[in-house]
């Protein structure tokens, strides 16, 4: 194999070198050959490197895209405020404003709406502040309980017991035209208040 390659290189070298080729098969001195081969190698490596980098831009960009792009939360309509009577905590669902065509049911999102008093709300994310399992509301004891590791929260969302490091995540809300809107989108995370 290596013999073959050398043969090719020699010929190519001769064609490209402009040595006149007076002697037909006469070869340039060994030193010149080596120098040319060294150059060819570096040239090839350089070309491959540039080509690889060019090809890598879209590939890497495609894969890390989601980490860079700025998805916007949007105001989502949870329905008329009358659905949430004063002093009660109610379950509500909405379609996530950030969604893709293939999300299916996964784009549905749930939250807990507490109407503290008429016109004053607290809207909690369904995700436990510990590791994100769905918390459930217990009207009788006025507690949220998490099925995963036993996190418990009071009705105002503050941590009552268990491993969660903080209270429940809360959505920003506003009332417009008699409807309750929340600022929703990305999955709630530890570092932010939603």
């Amino acid at each position: 194999m290596s013999d073959n390659t050398n043969g090719e290189t020699k010929k190519e070298g001769c064609v490209g070198c402009g040595c006149g080729g007076g002697g037909g098969g006469s070869l340039p001195p060994v030193a010149a050959q080596d120098a040319r081969r060294g150059f060819m190698f570096k040239f090839g490596a350089g070309l491959l490197g540039i080509g690889g980098a060019l090809a890598a831009v879209p590939i890497v960009g495609y894969i890390i895209g989601p980490a860079r792009s700025r998805y916007r939360n949007e105001w989502v309509d949870l329905g008329a405020t009358t659905l949430f009577p004063s002093g009660q905590t109610r379950f509500a669902t909405f379609l996530n404003p950030i969604r893709q065509p293939t999300d299916g049911d996964a784009a549905k999102t749930a939250c807990w709406v507490r109407c503290v008093e008429t016109g004053k709300f607290q809207v909690f994310a369904i995700n436990c502040a510990h590791l994100g399992c769905p918390v459930r509301w217990f009207e009788q004891s006025k507690l949220f309980m998490c099925p995963c590791h036993g996190g418990v929260y009071y009705q105002d969302g503050s941590r009552a017991a268990g491993p969660p490091p903080r209270g429940l995540f809360e959505y920003k809300w506003k009332v417009e035209g008699g409807k309750l809107l929340i600022d929703a989108g990305r999955l709630p995370g530890l570092e932010e208040s939603v």
Partner: peptide
Amino acid sequence: LGGPIIGGE
């Protein structure tokens, strides 16, 4: 997750 939510991606 391939985005800000758990979904298709």
